[in-house]
Amino acid sequence: MTGSESTVPNPRKADLQKLRGDLAKEVENLKRALKRPAEDIGGDKVWVGKNARAWHRELEGRHRKLGEQVGRLLPVIDAAIRDEPEKVPAAQARSYGSSA
C-alpha cells in the first residue's frame, strides 16, 4: 500500500460480524433442533419397542453431535473476525465487493 492510498472500513470484517450476530440468534434453536423428537420417541408416548429404542439412541446421538458442532461455530467466526484488520485499502474493499 502506498502512503497516498486511502483506507476504508474492512467490508469482510463487517460481513463476518453480521454473520456472527445472525448465527448467535439461531445457535440455541439449532442446538435444540432434535431435542423434542428425541424426547417424544424416547418417552414411550409415540413409539415403543426394540426399533423405537434403536431410533431413540440414534436420534439422541445425532442431537448431541449437532449441539457439539453448533457450539464450535461461533468461536470459528470469532477467530476469523479477530484476524481481519479494521481498515483495508479502498481498492481491496472494492474488489471484495465485486467478488461477493
Results as ranks from 00 to 15, higher is better:
29 N>R: 12
54 A>M: 01
70 V>F: 05
15 D>H: 11
22 D>V: 09
41 I>P: 00
53 R>E: 15
49 G>S: 08
15 D>K: 04
40 D>W: 00
35 K>D: 11
28 E>H: 10
25 K>E: 08
51 N>K: 05
41 I>K: 00
38 A>T: 10
24 A>T: 14
58 E>Y: 13
59 L>T: 03
66 L>G: 01
37 P>L: 02
25 K>H: 14
64 R>I: 07
8 V>Y: 06
20 R>C: 12
72 R>W: 10
54 A>N: 05
29 N>S: 12
68 E>D: 14
7 T>W: 02
30 L>P: 07
64 R>Q: 09
34 L>H: 02
55 W>I: 13
29 N>K: 13
26 E>S: 15
41 I>F: 04
36 R>V: 13
62 R>G: 02
30 L>Q: 01
44 D>W: 03
59 L>G: 01
61 G>I: 00
42 G>L: 01
43 G>Q: 03
71 G>D: 03
67 G>Q: 04
31 K>H: 06
6 S>A: 12
60 E>Q: 15
24 A>P: 04
38 A>W: 03
72 R>G: 15
73 L>M: 13
11 P>F: 04
7 T>Q: 06
24 A>E: 14
53 R>V: 14
16 L>Q: 01
65 K>R: 14
9 P>G: 12
33 A>H: 02
9 P>F: 09
22 D>A: 13
14 A>I: 02
17 Q>A: 08
18 K>M: 10
46 V>I: 10
61 G>W: 08
11 P>S: 02
30 L>K: 03
65 K>E: 15
48 V>H: 11
70 V>Y: 05
53 R>Y: 12
19 L>W: 01
56 H>Q: 11
31 K>T: 01
8 V>L: 05
73 L>Y: 09
39 E>L: 15
42 G>H: 00
18 K>G: 05
17 Q>S: 08
28 E>Y: 04
16 L>K: 02
56 H>S: 10
49 G>I: 01
21 G>N: 04
25 K>T: 02
59 L>H: 03
28 E>G: 05
38 A>R: 03
17 Q>M: 12
15 D>V: 07
38 A>Y: 02
23 L>D: 00
72 R>L: 11
